[in-house]
């Protein structure tokens, strides 16, 4: 059974993003970049499914040449081979979903496991779009995955609790935070990952139009909150709360 895991190179989640003064975007020059945290969880889940019938894990990234690093990280975690679709321009979720569909048509995996959202554009779209384009089942926000030879049963995190669905394979899963704890790549595995195969492609190789549909007119910092006050004790807090009408 083959699994494809798309991974994205994003600003490291610990770094506080800085909005560029000219309002064109967030400053990504000389800042630490990492694999999107949800994608790490997706890679980890694919690896854990290896003793449940998964025989090959292909990781895919779409983006600048430096995305190779992200793919090498996934290979060091335990993926078998990688495909990089090089695009120096940003590709929107719709374009990414179309490229992934082309890869799915070629590779014919049984499962595609994605992160539920990327922490840079916060879109939460790609997995659902891919499932729609392929006409296959989707299980988003997965917190538990049980795989059999022809179906997958997924517990999903939904507002108010959890929901379980069964999908016929092939299927698309997007993963939520609590699905698993991703492993760290060991030094020997990082070394080994250097010799694992990585194919380089372009969008044109797949005949996919990735022209953006959205134009970002400007990016600004959110309104700053005005500095508050510190109160000395509970009595003062209670007095203030009463003055605000929060407490009687």
């Amino acid at each position: 059974m083959k699994v494809i895991v798309p991974v994205k190179r994003v600003l490291d989640y610990n770094v506080k993003p800085r909005v560029k003064a000219d309002g064109t975007g967030v400053d990504l020059a000389n800042v630490k970049m990492s694999m999107n945290p949800f994608d790490e969880i997706a890679v980890e889940e694919a690896i854990r499914l290896k003793d449940k019938g998964v025989t090959e894990i292909v990781v895919v990234s779409i983006g600048e040449q430096k995305s190779q690093e992200t793919l090498r990280t996934a290979l060091a975690m335990g993926a078998d081979r990688a495909i990089l679709i090089v695009s120096e321009e940003k590709v929107e979720p719709l374009g990414v979903a179309k490229l992934l569909k082309a890869i799915v048509d070629e590779e014919k995996p049984d499962l595609v496991i994605l992160g539920k959202q990327a922490i840079d554009d916060d879109n939460n779209q790609t997995g659902q779009m891919l499932a729609g384009l392929l006409g296959v089942g989707q299980a988003t926000f997965a917190s538990k995955v049980e795989l059999t030879s022809d179906s997958v049963t997924v517990t999903r995190e939904v507002d108010g609790g959890a929901e379980t669905e069964t999908l016929t394979l092939p299927a698309i899963i997007t993963v939520d935070l609590r699905l698993n704890e991703p492993r760290y790549a060991s030094l020997p595995n990082i070394m080994k990952a250097k010799s694992k195969p990585m194919a380089q492609k372009t969008a044109a190789d797949y005949g996919v139009d990735i022209a953006p549909r959205l134009t970002t007119l400007k990016v600004v910092e959110p309104a700053k909150r005005s500095a508050g006050v510190k109160v000395a004790d509970v009595d003062e807090l209670v007095t203030k709360l009463k003055a605000m009408g929060v407490a009687k």
Binding site: N124, Q125, Q128, M129, G132, R213, L214
Partner: peptide
Amino acid sequence: ATSGGKNIAPRVAALLDVMQISD
């Protein structure tokens, strides 16, 4: 932009061949 809406909307967008605007 609830778990219900976020689950369905992008699938609709893909079927219409449009880019969704989230949240």
